[in-house]
Amino acid sequence: DAPDEFRDPLMDTLMTDPVRLPSGTIMDRSIILRHLLNSPTDPFNRQTLTESMLEPVPELKEQIQAWMR
């Protein structure tokens, strides 16, 4: 099983494109984008959230890719 820090906190699946929300939570980009289609909010604190506020986490993405090899 993947380490917890590699798993999306909402869907508990392996992240492939991790992004940091303004709240500091790291999620998979595809999952948070799907959530934003229904509700333009951070799913953990209900603060306003837009796609432009998502910050890529390239170092975590590299760690996940290395773990998958």
Rank of each mutant, 00 (worst) to 15 (best):
P40A: 14
L37S: 13
L60K: 00
T50M: 10
I26K: 01
P3M: 05
F44Q: 04
F44S: 03
E51S: 11
M53Y: 05
P18W: 06
L54W: 05
R20G: 01
I31M: 06
L33E: 09
L37D: 10
T41H: 09
P18C: 07
L37R: 14
R46E: 12
P9H: 06
P58G: 07
I31N: 09
E62D: 11
P58D: 09
R29N: 05
I32Y: 02
L14H: 04
I26Q: 01
L14M: 09
I26M: 04
P43T: 02
L10P: 04
P43Q: 02
R46S: 15
L14K: 01
T50P: 03
P58E: 10
L60S: 02
S30D: 13
Q63I: 11
M27G: 02
P58M: 09
S23H: 05
I64L: 06
S23K: 01
P43W: 04
V57Y: 08
D17N: 08
R29E: 04
I32V: 09
R46Y: 14
E55N: 08
E59K: 11
M11G: 09
R34G: 11
W67E: 02
D8I: 02
E51K: 10
L49A: 01
L10W: 11
T13L: 08
F44D: 02
M53D: 12
L14N: 03
H35N: 04
R46H: 15
V57S: 05
E51G: 07
L54E: 00
W67L: 04
E62I: 11
S52Q: 13
D8T: 03
P40N: 12
P56T: 08
I32E: 00
M53H: 05
S23Y: 04
R29S: 07
E55G: 05
M15Y: 03
I32S: 00
R29I: 07
W67I: 04
A66N: 13
T50V: 10
R69E: 14
M11N: 11
L10E: 04
T25L: 13
T48R: 14
T50R: 09
N38W: 12
D42A: 02
P3E: 04
R46L: 14
D8R: 03
P43C: 06
P43F: 03
S39H: 10
K61V: 08
D12P: 03
L37P: 00
W67P: 02
W67F: 09
Q47L: 10
G24I: 03
L54V: 04
N45C: 08
L10K: 05
D12F: 15
I64V: 07
M15R: 00
T16K: 12
Q65I: 14
T25P: 07
D12H: 15
Q65K: 12
S52D: 15
D42G: 00
D28K: 00
E5T: 11
D4I: 15
P22Q: 03
A66M: 15
E59D: 12
M15C: 07
N38A: 12
D1L: 14
I26Y: 05
D12W: 15
L33I: 12
A2V: 15
R69W: 11
S30K: 13
P9M: 07
S23F: 04
D4L: 15
Q63F: 08
M68V: 13
L33S: 07
I26G: 01
N45Y: 06
P40Q: 14
E5A: 12
R34S: 12
T41L: 09
T48K: 13
A66E: 14
M15Q: 00
P18R: 01
P40I: 07
R7D: 03
T16W: 12
P22K: 02
L33N: 06
T41G: 05
L33H: 07
Q65V: 12
F6H: 03
D4F: 15
E55Q: 13
